[in-house]
Write a protein that binds this DNA or RNA. Sequence first.
DNA 1: CCATCTCCTG
DNA 2: CAGGAGATGG
Length: 517
Amino acid sequence: MSLWSKGMYSSRDICLDDCAVEHLHLNYPEPPSTNLGLFYKDSKSIKGPIHRTENAPGLPCSSPLEFDLSGGRTRSPSSYGHQVKRARVENIIKGITCVDMTQNLNEETDCTQEEEGVDVLAFHQKRMETRGGESLRESHQPLRDESKSSQDIRDEEWKKGKSDVNSKPGRVKLMADVLKYELTRAVSNSVDSIFKSMALIQSPTEMESLGSASQTAVCMESKLRCGTEEVKLHDMQTEALSLVVQKPEPEQPKNFTLQSTSAAPLIPKPPFCVSRQPEPSVRHNSTDHQRHAFRCLQEGCAEGEPRLETYWNSVKVKSKVNSRSVRSPLAMPVDQVVLETLHLPNVKLEPDSLEKNNLYMSNECLTTNHLKKAKLMFFYTRYPSSVVLRMCFHDVQFTRCITSQLIKWFSNFREYYYIQMEKFARSALLQGATDVRDLTVGRESELFRALNMHYNKANDFQVPDRFLEVAEITLREFYIAISMGRDRDPSWKKTIYKVICKLDSDVPPEFKSQNFA
DNA sequence: CCATCTCCTG
DNA sequence: CAGGAGATGG
């Protein structure tokens, strides 16, 4: 079982998801007629009158889909007001016209809510069956005792489907694409539970047809079943799940290059509406450049802009720990600038005492360079474990305060990341994207630009390809969830978080280097 | 009780 | 990005 599911998702979350599925075709109290009609819950399942909230007066949009913005937690009744506020704010943030998605969908098809739900699910079933999805589904469920993955949920959804799919081509196509993508993803992810379980029941012929990826998974599965540490299977990705869990650090390859060494993209990437503008940019491919970027972080960059920017960043930061370091950069020699930004934000430096102060103070606080480094780390790991944090920030003393600040940083990084994902997914949907495969994240895409601007503002770091893949997967997860109306569930994002947390990579050794800051 | 996480707010 | 609230899990 993944550490993540233990650490982050409660059994109640699972229950919620179950309920959503369970109630799918039951005679649930029918909320407003404009709703998609896929997921409804009773008042026990959720702690808040969803529809009342979403239709609260003053909200710029009363679309059912707007509500989902209220985020991934069940809430106490006292927080209804917050939900309303948040809905408002997010409407603004989104900057997207409040088009009722349901309406869009209904324009294409002309059926009632219930029918739609059924149609979609029924089509899923057909689709899956023709692709051998049946065996996938049947096999992996019993083995996976952790909280339900999004795949689980999807499986259950279409399981309940009936057969009446031919009359709603547009809608069906959308859902078909969704399904295709999800299946593709499931097959591609060798560490996924699906493969774990497949190994147990697939016939040799079936196994062959699945190719090397699944065989790898099978090997891993065998290992697992033979009693090797369970953690191994998810080693590369779940370490971050609980920051308390300590994981032995694997040997790092010496000939590391910053370019991601991950496998090819899971999904074909046709051009898409989210990624339009050709990028003038700056695609640094050389390892040399990477190392240079690192040196800039490590030692301060001797040439031009980066160093200065780094310095100014340190001045601007308002964090308690480094807000005391305001000095004129122009009045200081380069070395002093570097040293100060790196180590001694809270000490007025005299040239003579630099070294001494370094010894005393360098490990007591996090600097802007640490922040910059953390942001770059985010390209590899969205959920770093405390072990990884310690290894990457070994120059600071890990007090409780420092630790929680680092954790908070990553929490903030994730927040921004997911907000962007949701924003772009909704945007794509409203722009009429009907095929998940159209949702790609390339280096020239607007989404990537936004992310890169946030985590790699100086643009002096070559973002690993793997990050783009993860971003793409995240975007598609959001797209799928939203297009299926799953976002009506207050905790709908958790399912996505759970998927994404497994996609963490190892942080390159450079980040752990003793010489690194 | 503490650590961690998400969400919200400033 | 930080602080705080609330939830959750060990």
